[in-house]
């Protein structure tokens, strides 16, 4: 069966429509059939509709994704309460340990993203992984950084990623590989992303899963939950009425 490849972190900016259109078309051409564009709580419904339309034009499935950059645990909880049911995917950009821990244990969070290049500020350690495995959150790795960085900075990043992958494997935390790029020439084919993942210790099958099965399962799970008849995993309302 043909695999569905996904890029859950494509920086297509709806404020630059031509660039965004090109980027989405390019992703489709490279073999992605599921795309998520990070948006903020301030992104308008019009922009979301436009992105959905552009994805539809090139024949890719659009996933609504919200990126949260909370400054405190309280703010994270408030934002999740307010926006969780409006988006198919919620990613928390973890810029402090406090946020990272809260995001990992919250079952409303789908992806944890650690943007810092400084290993001291990448909080995906054993404690974080244990919390994430108890919740439902996966670890998102942006391949754009691996491409852009050079020399010592890339060596340090790869070293951090190797450690994080080993921890994720130990605690069965799903890993999703995304592009995280906004430039056309930094987009890579899914199999190339999988090959690059070998640099931080994912074997070939795991890496291919990380650009296909893992993110697709994440999106399917959430779409099921967002349906009106959803009660609990495996239970949904089939029919309502007096004769039931």
């Amino acid at each position: 069966m043909k695999k569905t490849f996904s890029d859950l972190h494509l920086h297509a900016n709806p404020k630059k429509p031509e660039d965004a259109r090109q980027l989405i078309a390019k992703a489709a051409k490279l073999g992605y059939s599921l795309i998520a564009v990070p948006t903020s709580p301030e992104t308008s419904q019009g922009d979301m509709a436009w992105l959905r339309e552009v994805c539809g034009e090139v024949g890719v499935d659009f996933v609504s994704r919200l990126d949260l950059h909370p400054r405190s645990q309280g703010e994270l909880l408030r934002l999740l309460r307010k926006f969780r049911r409006r988006f198919e995917l919620v990613c928390v950009v973890c810029e402090s340990k406090e946020i990272a821990r809260q995001a990992a244990k919250d079952r409303r969070v789908d992806l944890l993203n650690f943007p810092s290049l400084d290993w001291r500020k990448r909080f995906f350690d054993r404690a974080e992984a244990e919390l994430a495995s108890g919740g439902l959150a996966g670890l998102e790795i942006d391949m754009g950084l691996v491409l852009v960085l050079e020399g010592r900075a890339r060596v340090r990043l790869l070293s951090s990623l190797q450690r994080e992958i080993a921890v994720a494997r130990e605690f069965h935390v799903p890993v999703a590989l995304s592009s995280g790029v906004e430039e056309l020439l930094l987009l890579r084919m899914p199999r190339e992303v999988a090959a690059l993942a070998g640099l931080f210790g994912l074997d070939e099958a795991e890496a291919v899963d990380s650009v296909s099965r893992v993110p697709v399962a994440l999106v399917q799970r959430n779409r099921l939950k967002l349906r009106s008849g959803f009660v609990a995993p495996g239970i949904h309302v089939v029919r309502e009425g007096d004769d039931c």
Binding site: L147, L185, M189, E192, V193, L196, L199
Partner: peptide
């Protein structure tokens, strides 16, 4: 093969 694929992908 995988090594070369990664190297080709890393060309910017």
């Amino acid at each position: 093969l995988r090594m070369v694929r990664a190297a080709l992908a890393s060309i910017t």
